Simulated assay, not measured.
Amino acid sequence: MGTYKKGINGRFTGKVGNTVGSQWKGIPVMKSLPDFSNHKASEKQLAHRAKFSLATKFLQPLYPVIQLGFQNQDNLKSPYNAAMSELIKYTIEGEYPNCRVNLENLVLAVGPLQVANRPSVEINGEEVVFNWRYKASNNDLFANNGVIMVAIAEGYYPEYSICESIRSAGTATMLLPDAPPGTEVHCYLAFAAMDDSKRVSNSIHVGTVVIPDDE
């Protein structure tokens, strides 16, 4: 894909030969149509497609979290595409066809805000409780940061909470994923500025909890 300011006859949209003109985020772009081939996909191509499919399936339920957590990344990438690139490059592991998401390495937010201090998680009934150390100061710019919490049980729909609590509370709760007793749940914590700055903190894999037996 290429960008341009002026074509031979100015900007254009639509198809001319094997070239398509369009706009993306207000930027004029040109790209060529794909070449169709009867050749069988190589092992490397199959592996890439498998990783892409796995990443897409994994990120879709987390779309609102991704939109916030990656909103201040590369301006030429959408937050979703930035998260997709991060996931494929650094988090999906294993050899095709046995690829998996390494949940301990998962990143859900990237930014300059201060990360959580001494975070921890614990179970309370049907909820997971996030705790972190907060020390107030006279000029605390982070006190009203919104809290981003995510709980992921592999193979089940994730749960998340976005900016329903603030950093200065030092604790917040959210529902556990709807998974059977004994399922391990990975928990993540980040913060977001409650203004138009688009600033977030890096997410932290706080730890895991296990869904308790029904009483």
Rank of each mutant, 00 (worst) to 15 (best):
V210S: 00
I148C: 05
T13K: 15
K40M: 08
L175N: 15
M84L: 08
K5F: 10
G207R: 10
K5N: 09
E154H: 01
Q45F: 02
K51L: 05
P79M: 04
K57F: 11
F142T: 09
K40V: 10
L189A: 00
N72W: 04
P180N: 01
T173G: 14
T3W: 12
P180E: 02
P97I: 01
K77L: 13
A192G: 08
T13Y: 07
I204A: 07
F130L: 09
V16D: 09
T171K: 15
F142C: 02
E159R: 00
Q114K: 08
D213E: 15
V150G: 01
N18L: 07
E154P: 01
V128F: 03
K40G: 05
T208S: 02
L62W: 06
V107L: 09
R167S: 12
K6R: 11
T19Q: 05
S53C: 15
N145W: 07
I27W: 07
M84W: 00
N139D: 13
A82M: 08
I148T: 10
Q114A: 10
N145C: 13
P64N: 13
S165W: 00
L113N: 00
Y63D: 15
I92C: 15
K5M: 12
E95V: 13
V147H: 03
D178A: 11
K57R: 15
S42Q: 06
Y134P: 11
R199T: 05
D178Q: 11
D140R: 09
Q114P: 03
S53N: 13
M84V: 05
F58H: 07
L54Y: 01
R100F: 13
Q60L: 14
Y188C: 04
E215T: 07
F70Y: 14
A193E: 03
I211Q: 08
E184Y: 07
F52W: 13
V16M: 13
R199A: 08
I204K: 05
I148G: 03
G146R: 01
C187D: 00
M194L: 09
L59F: 14
N9W: 03
N38W: 07
V200K: 11
L62H: 14
S165I: 00
P180A: 04
V129Y: 05
F12R: 07
L103H: 13
L33M: 11
S78V: 04
H205S: 10
S161L: 06
C187S: 00
M1T: 09
K135W: 03
E93F: 02
Q60F: 11
L176G: 05
M1I: 06
G94A: 12
A179M: 01
K198R: 12
E43F: 10
A83P: 08
L176I: 01
V121S: 00
Q71L: 10
Y160R: 03
L175R: 12
E126L: 07
L141F: 12
V210T: 11
I27K: 12
G94K: 04
F36L: 05
A50Q: 06
E43Y: 09
A55W: 04
L54H: 13
S85N: 09
T183K: 12
P112A: 06
I66R: 13
L176Y: 00
N9I: 04
M194Y: 03
R167P: 13
L62T: 15
Q23V: 13
R167M: 11
V128A: 04
K31F: 15
N138F: 11
E159V: 00
G146L: 03
Q23P: 01
E159I: 02
I152L: 01
A109Y: 06
